[in-house]
């Protein structure tokens, strides 16, 4: 079973992240960029499926040149090879445009299964797999907390409020994973060394046959008009419990008419 895992490089969600005031896009150059944490679960799942079904795991990333770090991480976990779509024209693309680029790249690959994270930690739009499913005409099994492969039949437990939905579809298909699906492995030393020799193919929009004018800020389907830091909250009150903490807490709630 050939699997493509979609991996995005994002600014570290544990640090202060910013938009760039020159064009209202994510400030990626100045950020501490890492692999989208949610995609590690997708990689782990792809490797698990490969271990039971055989085949190859290809990593696909659309992002600036610096995104090679995320690719290396995926390769060091055990993916076999990578495709990196990088083209300055893509800068500032909306999700709709990005999905056209990813779909074009997928069309040049052989896959039975595409696995991706349920959301990125920067855009958090959490629709990329649905957009790709729509564009490629393949089924989407979304929000998986469990994936079972039985021949060409895929079974997914889609996590819901207080339970799950049992989903079924045939390959080729796209599966998006939640962080409840597995525990991603750490790259081993051997894995890190091996990753350095694994093939990474870089493709431009021209290689994909995508018109550069159809992507990027100028033709994005939505536009950020302006942004601002969230207004700072008024300085909060902090009390130390000296036997009266509960009383003060309830006093605050009463004052705010919350009890």
């Amino acid at each position: 079973m050939n699997i493509v895992v979609l991996v995005k490089q994002v600014p570290d969600s544990g640090t202060e992240r910013q938009l760039d005031s020159s064009d209202n896009t994510v400030a990626r150059a100045s950020a501490d960029n890492v692999i989208n944490e949610m995609d590690e679960y997708a990689i782990e799942e792809a490797l698990t499926v490969k271990e039971s079904q055989g085949g190859e795991v290809t990593v696909l990333t659309v992002g600036p040149d610096g995104a090679t770090d995320a690719i290396r991480k995926a390769l060091s976990m055990g993916a076999d090879k990578a495709v990196h779509v990088s083209d300055t024209a893509i800068h500032g693309s909306c999700a709709v445009q990005t999905s056209a680029v990813i779909a074009a790249a997928l069309s040049q690959l052989e896959y039975d299964l595409v696995i991706c994270g349920a959301e990125s930690t920067d855009g958090r739009v959490s629709v990329m797999p649905a957009l790709l499913s729509e564009r490629l005409g393949i089924p989407h099994l979304s929000g998986a907390r469990k994936l079972t492969v039985e021949g060409s039949t895929l079974k997914v437990e889609r996590q819901t409020d207080g339970g799950f939905w049992a989903l079924e579809a045939q390959t080729p298909a796209i599966v998006s994973t939640w962080d409840t699906i597995n525990e991603p492995r750490y790259p081993s030393f051997k894995g890190i060394m091996a990753a350095k020799k694994k093939p990474v193919e870089t493709k431009s929009l021209a290689d994909l046959g995508v018109d550069a004018g159809s992507v990027g800020l100028a033709t994005a389907t939505s536009q950020v008009l302006d942004f601002a830091g969230r207004p700072p909250k008024g300085e909060g009150v902090k009390v130390t419990d000296e036997g009266d903490g509960a009383e003060k807490l309830v006093g605050y709630l009463a004052e705010q008419k919350l009890v």
């Binding site: 969600s13 202060e16 992240r17 910013q18 938009l19 209202n24 920067d122 958090r124 994005a220 389907t221 939505s222 536009q223 950020v224 008009l225 302006d226 942004f227 601002a228 830091g229 969230r230």
Partner: peptide, 13 residues
Amino acid sequence: AFAGATIVHAKVT
């Protein structure tokens, strides 16, 4: 955006 740190105004074009 960004865990509540940034407020963005946007428009569909």
